[in-house]
Design a protein around this nucleic acid. Structure first.
Lengths: 242, 242
DNA sequence: TTCGGCGTTCAGACTCCTCTCATGACCAGC
DNA sequence: GCTGGTCATGAGAGGAGTCTGAACGCCGAA
């Protein structure tokens, strides 16, 4: 995750300490200023004090639920956008219009990639953002549009599965940086994924097949962008000059 | 919902906090400046202060009903247009008489798509609006007239059912953006719709049959505009270049 | 009342995705 | 050149996601 100047101020609300910790650490590293709260009441007072640009809010809280918190936040005139965290079987619990306005939601267990991407997407939609490059990742002749989920290599459209897409986004957010398989697993896969790191190798292989093969407009083979650092991990970068 | 500079100032009047919240959040995100009131008296004083361009008014209020509020508003010389919210069984008798002038009404439970579309339609009719493109949505060779409810694909008229129409409008308001099934459900269907997201798949299927099949003027098959992003949602966009 | 259109649900078929496993290639150090 | 470890890739099982047709109830129009 590239960390720049503080991108935005977030409030993370979850009663499970592990989740709170996981999120706040990762989001701070992703460049956000992060405050936390463990329940609805604390969330309201924290929001009052810290004036977040976005609230990451677990729907299931011990006191007030996420909807009550949202309503009270907005009754106070703060129409701050919310990213809801919800269990998969709570879908019925979705209640009227979880995703109204600029809001969005992510189901637990989530991947960190997913959360960061959704936060950025919500801020992009609701923020003052007039950034033309918003939602667009570019590395060499490889381009990704996060809103339409489109990927192009050397001008050609590439179809990626959801996991392939998330993996490539993670690589493109960290160009020229070697990422270990464990790191990739921790960011791209669900936080309670039980499998082995071998799956990363498989998906790197799929990605290479889709973006590092084929030819450009003149018929020359494209230069590979995904490189193996044996014993270390993988890196997205331009191939060495010669 | 594309959000632009504040389009107009609205006053939302409803005694149910959830409905008020749902409406104000969504309408703000749709680009309106929104004030709220919980009963008739508050509505009158808010209208006095904020001078709205349109009032969204629940007919059933704890103190004054929608008639009285409207009458008093107009006695004060404010001929602001009103969009009434009414329960289904109130329709026959009373509401019809209410909708004099540029007014309109929507029955509860409503869909957000519907409310936003009606508000825009009323403002278009009554406002100073001289926008030539008003009420007209175009994407590639697909055209929709929101006022006449007409849809054309490659020059051919297409007949759509009401739900199909709303779904297509939502897609056309968000071109090149992947919309999840939940998002679509929340915007296009009634806010208390209890069903599953499967219905979205069905209606996408109907829409495809009507607008993504057939041929253009030269007899070439039309290019599909509705695309599935497996595991993510649907997107309205031009097919990949080649 | 009958009829037809519409909204909704459901089930089956199908496609695509995820993940694991096994094999063989590759690489670095000796 | 060996050798042990690492990595690339294909095959395939199983599952999740998707599409479509059929059926039913509702409602408004005739």
């Amino acid at each position: 995750m590239t960390s720049t100047a503080a991108e935005a101020r977030l409030l993370v609300v979850d009663d499970e300490p592990n989740i709170r910790e996981l999120l706040s650490t990762s989001l701070r590293f992703a460049g956000f200023e992060v405050h936390t709260a463990a329940d609805g009441q604390e969330a309201l007072s924290q929001a009052e004090r810290t004036r977040p640009d976005l609230v990451v809010l677990d729907v299931m809280l011990p006191d007030l639920d996420g909807f009550a918190v949202t309503r009270r936040l907005r009754e106070r005139g703060r129409d701050v956008p919310v990213l809801f965290l919800t269990a998969k079987d709570d879908v019925a619990d979705r209640v009227a219009g979880l995703t109204v306005g600029g809001d969005d939601y992510v189901t637990k267990p989530f991947s960190l990639e997913e959360v960061v991407a959704r936060i950025r997407a919500v801020l992009r939609r609701t923020g003052s953002g007039a950034d033309p490059a918003a939602g667009r990742l570019v590395f060499a002749d490889l381009e990704m549009d996060e809103d339409s989920h489109e990927v192009h290599r050397a001008g050609h459209a590439v179809e990626l599965s959801p996991t392939e897409f998330k993996l490539l986004r993670y690589l493109m957010l960290n160009p020229n940086r070697v990422l270990s398989k464990t790191q990739i697993l921790d960011h791209v896969w669900h936080y309670d994924f039980g499998g082995e790191a071998g799956i990363v190798e498989s998906y790197i292989s799929y990605l290479r097949r889709k973006i590092d093969t084929g030819t450009d407009a003149e018929g020359n083979p494209v230069k590979p962008l995904i490189h193996t650092r044996r014993g270390v991990g993988y890196v997205l970068r331009l191939p060495p000059a010669a």
